[in-house]
Design a protein around this nucleic acid. Structure first.
Lengths: 199, 199
DNA sequence: TGAGTTAACCTAACACTGTTCGGTTAGTCG
DNA sequence: CGACTAACCGAACAGTGTTAGGTTAACTCA
């Protein structure tokens, strides 16, 4: 059918359904044809609203990262770093399946850079040199992205019994989904606290 | 041509050529047909030596991670952590293009787990509780993998002039390849030092 | 009101991808 | 010498992202 009375597609709708598919089926579970199908449309029609799949993923990533809050440096820079990192982690852990895409970088996404720039500026204002500020901001990103991708929750989904005999030191309990989630959060908090304290 | 006098293929040769392609053309630059071509062979022939592409990538990842050294805890645990992290980073930064694949994790790769297990055991021996040891090991991995994937070198490869006006705080010099490499290393070292000191 | 343009969809196709099936033959073992 | 296996190849399948060209509804403007 040609041109419907009310448009079926819009960039926003495409992005939101695409993100839903990613959340549900993983990053590899998203194909343009499947996306089109769930939108009640043929695959080719998407390209009137989206330049390319990669661009679509980038847009989705940006919209996720735009939820990150870097205000909080009014108090002091340590607290600001911690808030910023928590906000980042919250954004990423809401949509963990998109993290592998972020790994393809460029970290040169607009939103990321804007936030990095603000972070950097706040650190400089707090008395760090430009170079130090850059490295501290980078270190914070290490913890954020590292925790997003090497998480216990998404890591070992198979049967705990497989591990317990081969790796005597590792605790089987880590592998239960509930415990893993909590452990992820606590590990992140510990790493963050240690990092900020150690500066 | 059928069965040649001396076999053209072996798992080792396949892995090494595949890794060379990944290093040269990126993770997406590796296809079974291209790999076969560079081995002087048809794509189907690979499947006599390799179960699947994913398995091949896993094997490559393992062989890279098996270069990681977790001995060094004889001295003290802080030094051990630092050495371990450096060794990890060295392994990953030699083949940065495979990092996106690792992001798809399961982190449940054999080699990773073995090393994590040893790390964990050493921390427990040093007096940390099992839970603390797990979280510390996780934190170390955050920094290692975070630095591997959100690096300045691989991040912004485009023209520095694009950035300098839009992001006033960021220093243009960060974007020059040479400086970026050095900055990556220093950022990693700073994050690592701060983390270990803060424990 | 009616003509022309544009916007939004479609079908069909292209060049890829990973993977499998069935062949063909060189080497090896009894 | 015969049977068998190991190692390759050609062709195909289902799936991928993406593009070209067509069809028609909705909008614009005289």
């Amino acid at each position: 059918m040609p041109r419907p009375s009310t448009p079926l597609l819009s960039p926003d709708r495409i992005r939101s359904v695409a993100l839903a598919i990613i959340d549900r089926d993983g990053l590899d579970g998203l194909s343009m044809r499947k996306l089109a199908a769930e939108l009640g449309v043929q695959a080719a029609s998407l390209y009137g609203h989206v330049r390319t799949k990669d661009q679509l993923l980038n847009d989705i990533a940006q919209s996720i990262l735009s939820a990150v809050d870097v205000s909080g440096f009014s108090v002091d820079w340590r607290e600001g770093l911690i808030r910023c990192a928590r906000s980042y982690r919250a954004a990423l852990s809401t949509h963990p399946n998109i993290v592998p895409f972020l790994a393809y970088g460029p970290a040169g996404r607009e939103e990321s850079l804007q936030r990095l720039d603000l972070l950097h500026g706040a650190l400089v204002d707090a008395g760090w040199s430009r170079r130090e500020a850059t490295m501290i901001a980078a270190g914070l990103m290490y913890i954020v992205f590292g925790s997003a991708l090497s998480s216990f929750s998404s890591g070992f989904s198979s049967d705990p019994a497989d591990y317990v005999d081969r790796y005597p030191h590792l605790d089987r309990a880590h592998l239960l989904p509930g415990v893993a989630r909590e452990l992820d959060r606590d590990s992140f908090e510990l790493a963050l606290a240690a990092f900020v304290r150690g500066l």
